[in-house]
């Protein structure tokens, strides 16, 4: 029997949009004007928020979902997909973002968590979710809750790529470890990873994550973006790195080109020239444990 009615919100449709973003750069923007700059530079999507992570870090206090007016003005300004962040576990912020027509919801550790035990039940939404992870277990827990895309967390708002590297290496190493296990060992592995067994088995059989994985949290230069791509990420999020730099339009375009040509050092060298001042970075050891965003999420 053929079914010609439109079935929306299926897993394939949700993960499919992430597949279309691969090899691309998703940029944090706080105004419609920045969103246009990002689109013109070749961004595959924009993340609409009230403050970039570096400013959230500086401001302190509770960081929440952006004002709907900001999200709407960005949705109206560009034709590329628009993402927006809700607090971890804040399913009403997620409901609002879905009603505003955003294309992807980021349940994000950059904002202050609303629930220290539960994440949003993402299966209940038509709009897909992306979530952060530091290791394979965290990635698979989020996918088990219905995330259609993951991103390694890094440490947002630092301009320091070291945590992003640590997290993608952790995920890759754990996938390689699972591949080498025998069938009966996978049950114990699922227990160790605190992840659903069927997802652990899928990763062991296929040698990769079941959804697209981008890199986030600390990417500031074209070389950083290419590094994350060579380490196996499917694409990159750049948060504070663009609009906290000296020449955002030029830097944004250079990061887009380096992400596409991530194995071509001649091109990366060319686009890295004369980009002006990069954002001032922060050493991770200078951030108190309580202010590390990556520790949020369970």
């Amino acid at each position: 029997m053929s079914d010609t009615t439109n079935q929306t919100g299926t897993p394939r449709v949700k993960t499919g949009l992430a597949e279309m973003l691969k090899g691309g750069v998703i940029m944090d923007v706080v105004t419609a004007e920045q969103a246009k700059i990002a689109e013109d530079a070749g961004a595959v999507a924009v993340m609409s928020l009230e403050r970039v992570p570096a400013d959230i870090r500086a401001a302190g206090g509770v960081a929440r979902m952006a004002d709907p007016t900001i999200v709407e003005s960005i949705v109206a300004a560009v034709s590329i997909p628009v993402m927006a962040k809700c607090r971890i576990g804040h399913f009403v912020e997620a409901q609002i973002l879905q009603s505003l027509g955003v294309d992807y919801i980021d349940e994000s550790e950059v904002l202050t968590p609303a629930d220290e035990e539960h994440h949003v039940d993402k299966w209940r939404f038509t709009v897909p979710f992306v979530c952060g992870c530091r290791n394979l277990g965290e990635a698979l827990r989020r996918i088990g809750e219905g995330a259609s895309m993951v991103r390694t967390k890094g440490e947002p708002g630092t301009g320091n790529v070291v945590e992003a590297v640590r997290h993608i290496r952790a995920v890759s190493d754990e996938i390689a470890w699972l591949k080498g296990l025998r069938g009966e060992q996978l049950y114990a592995a699922a227990k160790d990873l605190q992840a659903p067994y069927d997802l652990v088995k899928w990763v062991a059989d296929n040698g990769k994550l079941p959804v697209v994985n981008f890199s986030a949290g600390g990417i500031a230069t074209p070389a950083d973006a290419a590094l994350m791509m060579q380490l196996g990420c499917d694409g990159v999020f750049v948060g504070s790195g663009i609009f906290k730099s000296g020449d955002p339009a030029k830097r944004a375009k250079a990061i887009v080109e380096a992400t596409t040509h991530f194995e071509d050092a001649d091109i990366i060298a060319r686009v890295s020239r004369n980009l002006g001042e990069a954002m001032v970075g922060i050493n991770i050891s200078d951030i108190p444990d309580s202010e590390r965003m990556q520790e949020r999420g369970w």
Binding site: S2, T4, Q7, G9, R12, V13, L17, V102, V127
Partner: peptide, 9 residues
Amino acid sequence: RQAASFEAD
């Protein structure tokens, strides 16, 4: 937008 993305035969 994405909420209207779909599958059909």
